[in-house]
């Protein structure tokens, strides 16, 4: 249960940062928090208490229902890699924004662009 509380907290912090912070870098941190919350949610799905590791050649019937399948871990790894790529793209865009407009404040950006 604790893990879901942590996930909810991370999601709330992430969305708060994304919606109410004006600095682009802080917005990127917010998105990274959301990504981490989702990854934690995915990995928590794979947890089976008193589970069996899926390394049998011939698994006994009582292990079938509580086998710890590696699928959620594979999903999470893929999601982490994708999250890394999109964070890298966002940070490089923040660099370009700063080079072009000399500010990272999204409220000032709107004024610069509407000129």
């Amino acid at each position: 249960m604790l893990v879901y509380l942590v996930i909810a907290l991370l999601l709330a912090l992430g969305f708060y940062t994304l919606l109410f912070k004006k600095n682009l870098i802080k917005m990127i941190i917010g998105i990274a928090l959301i990504e981490n919350a989702v990854n934690m949610f995915l990995i928590s799905l794979g947890y089976v208490s008193d589970g069996y590791a899926p390394i049998y050649t011939i698994a006994p019937a009582e292990t079938w229902s509580s086998m710890v399948l590696p699928t959620p871990q594979a999903l999470t790894l893929t999601a982490i890699v994708i999250g890394l790529a999109s964070t890298a793209v966002m940070l490089s865009l923040a660099v370009m924004v700063f080079k072009n407009y000399k500010t990272l404040d999204s409220s000032k950006l709107g004024g610069i662009l509407s000129e």
């Binding site: 994304l18 917005m27 990504e35 999903l75």
Partner: peptide, 24 residues
């Protein structure tokens, strides 16, 4: 351009995260 691209990637990432939670 940088501003537009930033909007695009932000929306895409949030949408993709929603989809990922649903898949989970």
């Amino acid at each position: 351009s940088p501003d537009s691209a930033f909007k695009l990637i932000t929306v895409s990432t949030i949408a993709a995260m929603m989809i990922l939670v649903a898949i989970g």
